[in-house]
Design a protein around this nucleic acid. Structure first.
Lengths: 156, 156
DNA sequence: CGCTGTTAGATGTCTGTGCAACAACGTCTT
DNA sequence: AAGACGTTGTTGCACAGACATCTAACAGCG
């Protein structure tokens, strides 16, 4: 472990990072698996539907949406292709900017989302929140806020 | 947000999960980018080299290694293919189990790791640890330990 | 107007990963 | 000893995602 101390990281600090990494991967895989099994819906697709559902008019510009789901622009193009093929979203032109496109949640997309959401939330509950206590959740919330600059703008 | 309350998750709890997700992705991408830029080494490759370096005899069984780096067996096979092609690891037969293979860190692999490690650790420091305080790190450590059953066995 | 530069999306190509199927080997039973 | 069964690692295949590049559309300036 000489590699560590030389660079000014304690073993505990590194262990914290690794634990976070492992936890995140584990939870994400669990979610992906459950959503796929029960609703034939990949996690990334779920995230897109969820962001659209909470947006006003059930619609978001491609660029905006890509940022929210942490996907490259091209990645989102393909994902929306798939969702459109499956009838879960539609593309609509933007009135004031002819370059722009809205991804719009369709009715069947909303239905699919509603169907999958219990699975998603249950996963977060059992794989994540239940492993922390209530007090820890409050603590963690304030702590982790500093990790994500964007989090400040998420007034729920 | 009616979707939420119906399922027994508070907005804060969901926000915590999202924040964690975003933070993890952001840090991971930063690390990947820096390692690639400075050392032409993908993050996954770095992780493999690091696990091998800390293993006794600089070697680990493929299966064992796959678990540690959170990769499927096939994924690891290909990754080791690449690392072997680049001369950073070698494959060695296992004496007591003819099915088994060791992935072994080569000297140039160790050199490459040593070269990349400052970049890696600096990334964790600036993108992760610096954003938390020292007290929060200690808190977080005990909290997150419960998120990863495997963490208990990581006596550093 | 016509240039220049920028932005929004879409497409070609490449890399990496997982799953299912497989081969080789080990272990346990009887 | 011999088969059933599990384990280890690799391969075929398909898919998702990133990057670079392209086209269309805006904005600003001469």
């Amino acid at each position: 472990m000489t590699l560590l101390r030389d660079e000014g990281l304690t073993a505990g600090e590194l262990a914290l990072w690794r634990t976070l990494q492992r936890a995140q991967v584990r939870i994400t895989r669990h979610l992906e698996g459950e959503l796929l099994d029960a609703h034939d819906l990949p996690l990334a697709s779920y995230e897109v539907l969820a962001r659209l559902a909470e947006a006003s008019g059930r619609r978001l510009r491609m660029n905006d949406l890509a940022d929210r789901v942490l996907l490259s622009r091209s990645g989102l193009t393909r994902l929306i292709d798939r969702l459109q093929r499956d009838g879960l979203v539609t593309r609509e032109a933007c009135a004031d900017d002819a370059r722009g496109l809205y991804a719009v949640l369709s009715d069947s997309g909303a239905a699919r989302l509603a169907e999958a959401t219990p699975t998603y939330l249950r996963g977060i509950r059992t794989q994540f929140l239940d492993l922390l206590g209530a007090a820890e959740i409050a603590q963690a919330r304030t702590m982790l806020a500093s990790l994500d600059p964007e989090a400040a703008s998420q007034h729920a």
